[in-house]
Design a protein around this nucleic acid. Structure first.
Lengths: 327, 327
DNA sequence: TTGAAAGCGCTACCAA
DNA sequence: TTGGTAGCGCTTTCAA
């Protein structure tokens, strides 16, 4: 039903050849103004729309990139996506967005179909490289926030180490000694962010700090903070796995009657714009999310065009401490 | 550089015809296991990836929908987009997302390119119908939150009237009489939401209520509330144009030393999930954003397939009051 | 200024 | 089980 009226129909109705139709529609010169108008009229009347496939087949331009993210509603990924869209638009490229709903099954399904629709894939993937490779079958791919072993892939690396150290330095400078962390829950292993945190604490002679776990939501953060403070009421500061959890912690702290940052300082991770709508505004180890998205697109573009990859050091995004009000 | 190795190359290397290659790659039966393996090996070795254009040309399936939104970072649009993505995924359709950066110029540019890439367009548009029509050239389009005159378009209509009335009823029932509103700023005319509000107030004999204007951001909401309370210190409740503004108002109220909802009740509009991360959680006139996105996709699909449009009453999304904590 | 022919890369439909 | 032929809808030579 969809693709019905073709260039031939227009040609017939306009009483010209289809090459002439093509000329009229694509604003090529070498065509009589009258003829052109006649063709345009016929096309409009018939409701003619050129087939993107036929056109794409003969003009080898137009780049489309698949962006795979676990959850668009997670503000962090929203920001990365926005950065990617902007970078793509600037280049005239198109981005098909796939939300895998945090499900590895959906991710598999997505990978299955994405390869037939785009020139390259960028995003966050959970599958291991072998399976990724199998699905992708040679399509250029840029993994965000994850290193790769196979040379078939490219990565945007995230380095939060410096930022986390800055955060701990900041807290210690403000007099904090009893600093806890709310890591993420539900994954097999503790996060890198936790390692960085422990490391930074170590540097200040603050050993074996307290670490709780929060499920990935504001409520999760609130609950986790309650538990943590329950067991360690003497904490004066917490660093969290990310901003969402931190916002929950903020809320929990208030309910506990603790002033932030007076009684409890809170530092998140991600540096979401959202951090400014809560009160106090969230201090956070900030990642440049727009840049992450933009880099992924830029790198994907190079891979598609067969250009050399961006230099490794440019594929790295480092976090810095963003001091707002909560610490 | 991009599209180099074709099915013919694979056929040559594997020593078969290209039809056989096609069979092997598409898991058709009627092929010898050995041959198939040979083909697969050759394909992999050559790094062969089928052209999506050629494939699309011959198999007339695969639906791609363009989603045009003013600002992905606005949580309301994020939620709508997420709903659209989910609905599209369920159908195996693809969604190309375009962020027009709240700019009519970008919107024009987007429309220009989108028509060549998708089967239908859905989203939020600022251009008038005539220009829209000119750009779209007959492509099916679904306008969200905006009515259409031309039969060429389809609309998802938003009705907040009932919800706003519920909100005012709720406030009045709680004893509020001095209820103000923070409308949006910067647009030519006052919003429909304001009309609904005034209407609902009227019904309770509360005439000529106070209306301020806020720019679309949390800070804007905070600033606007300060001004409003400055001029009308006796207000005990505010209804806002949307949740973002409401969150700013929440923050401002706290800074003013006003308890929410004790000293000042706050009701937003949109019902964002985000409303739960602030404290107190935001009471809001809620729209089912997922449903909006899903409906837009469903309707677009019908238009593409030439099926009859969804019935008018199903194309309508009504807001309902979502009572949380702020009122 | 226009049209005829060729071909983009692939799959469907036959016949072998 | 395989291959030949045709053709999807369009643009690009090249002649007329």
């Amino acid at each position: 039903m969809s693709r019905r009226v073709t260039i031939n129909d227009v040609a017939r109705v306009a009483g010209v050849s289809r090459q002439t139709v093509s000329r009229a529609l694509n604003d090529k010169g070498e065509i009589d103004a009258g003829t052109k108008q006649r063709v345009l009229d016929a096309a409009r009347e018939l409701g003619y729309r050129p087939s993107r496939f036929a056109r794409g087949l003969v003009r080898q331009d137009s780049t489309t990139i698949g962006l795979v993210i676990p959850d668009l509603l997670n503000p962090f990924f929203t920001e990365v996506a926005a950065g990617a869209l902007e970078a793509a638009r600037a280049r005239g490229w198109h981005v098909i967005v796939y939300d895998t709903a945090d499900s590895i099954t959906v991710e598999r399904g997505t990978l299955e179909v994405v390869v037939a629709q785009v020139d390259a894939v960028v995003g966050y993937f959970s599958l291991d490289e072998a399976e990724l490779d199998r699905h992708l079958g040679g399509m250029p791919a840029v993994l965000i926030g994850r290193d790769h072993r196979s040379p078939r892939f490219s990565s945007i690396r995230i380095d939060g180490e410096k930022g986390v150290h800055e955060a701990v330095d900041h807290l210690v400078a403000a007099g904090h000694r009893r600093i806890g962390m709310l890591d993420h829950a539900g994954r097999a292993e503790p996060s890198l962010r936790r390692d960085w945190f422990i490391d930074a604490m170590d540097e200040h002679g603050l050993h074996a700090p307290v670490v709780g776990n929060a499920v990935q939501s504001a409520d999760g953060g609130a609950e986790a903070l309650n538990e943590l403070l329950d067991q360690h009421p003497d904490l004066t500061a917490v660093f969290t796995y990310n901003d969402i959890i931190a916002m929950g912690a903020l809320k929990a702290a208030r309910r506990l009657g603790k002033a932030v940052p007076g009684d409890l300082a809170v530092v998140g991770f991600d540096g979401l714009q959202l951090g400014t709508v809560v009160d106090p505004a969230l201090t956070s180890v900030a990642l440049d999310t727009r840049r992450i998205g933009a880099l992924a697109i830029a790198q994907a573009g190079r891979l598609v065009a067969g250009e050399p990859s961006l230099p490794d050091e440019e594929l790295l995004v480092s976090a810095v401490l963003l001091v707002r009000e909560s610490a």
